[in-house]
């Protein structure tokens, strides 16, 4: 007697975002997308901070504008908080993917499978080989930077809303200024490889743009590093001074800003 066999029940598929993220190629794609989010933030942050060179009023009003954006369309700080949540999620997923891929790579080339002879890299550069270390430096720095200039626990006199003086008081300490410079150099090295690598991970590859991809990465890294390290250097060099010591926030204040 012939017995009809029921078709084997297909294994229940996981939702596609999970299946996708479980693969290394998917994780790299997620790292690229979250990297783009982070890159966008870093660029806007650097450009916004250039207002330090205009005046205390300009940069403090800029800070206030970020809280009010987009003015009457949303209640105050709602957009800011949405942005913060997106940034934190992007950072979290970027770090998780990096940690998980690092473990995968360590399994593929464990200690007992390392080359015993001196082995020289042919094309891998300093940036590509130090991604995890520059990444960790930047991660630690983000913690310190938030503590220092967002929450006000960095040791310097902190007044909520007075971004200008908070920044100047913080950067007046040589050690802190040095920390900012070092961390931003690490960020630059991270971006140098990351921005180029992002194109490969997303599969953006076309003979017409392939040369431009590396140049774009180099330019982005250079612009970010030069912009960001100029702030602590300017404060240390005395080009930007603390303004209106003793006056309360919002009171009339002498024009301050770039002085030579």
């Amino acid at each position: 007697m012939a017995t009809a066999t029921a078709p084997a029940k297909r294994k229940r598929e996981l939702p596609w975002p999970i299946t996708f993220y479980r693969s290394a190629v998917g994780k790299k794609w997620v790292m690229a997308i979250s990297g783009v989010v982070g890159l966008g933030f870093v660029v806007v942050h650097m450009i916004g901070n250039l207002k330090l060179y205009l005046s205390r009023e300009e940069i403090n009003l800029y800070g206030e504008a970020l809280r009010e954006f987009p003015k009457h369309l949303l209640p105050r700080t709602v957009f800011l908080w949405i942005t913060r949540v997106v940034l934190v999620l992007a950072l979290a997923v970027h770090v998780h993917a990096a940690a998980s891929l690092t473990r995968m790579n360590a399994r593929a080339r464990p200690r007992n499978q390392q080359y015993q002879s001196p082995r020289d890299y042919q094309v891998a550069n300093y940036a590509s080989r130090t991604m995890r270390w520059t990444g960790i430096i930047v991660l630690l720095f983000i913690g310190f930077h938030l503590l220092d200039l967002t929450w006000g626990g960095g040791g310097a006199d902190f007044e909520r809303g007075d971004a200008y003086n908070n920044l100047v008081r913080s950067f007046d300490r040589p050690l802190v200024a040095a920390v900012y410079v070092v961390a931003n150099l690490a960020l630059g090295v991270h971006l140098f490889h990351g921005v180029w690598s992002m194109f490969q991970s997303l599969g953006v590859n076309n003979p017409r743009i392939n040369k431009a991809r590396k140049r774009f990465a180099q330019s982005v890294a250079a612009i970010i590093v030069i912009g960001n390290i100029s702030f602590p250097i300017a404060v240390q060099a005395g080009w930007v001074d603390e303004a209106c010591v003793g006056t309360e926030h919002g009171e009339p204040c002498e024009p301050s800003g770039l002085k030579f």
């Binding site: 042919q122 991604m131 690598s197």
Partner: peptide, 24 residues
């Protein structure tokens, strides 16, 4: 393991296959 876009494979490949194929 997973790709971190070092480009060492392309440099070592005896047939000089491009990492453009990895992007594809």
């Amino acid at each position: 393991g997973s790709c971190t876009n070092h480009g060492e494979c392309e440099a070592a490949c005896p047939k000089e296959i491009s990492i453009d194929f990895i992007a594809l």
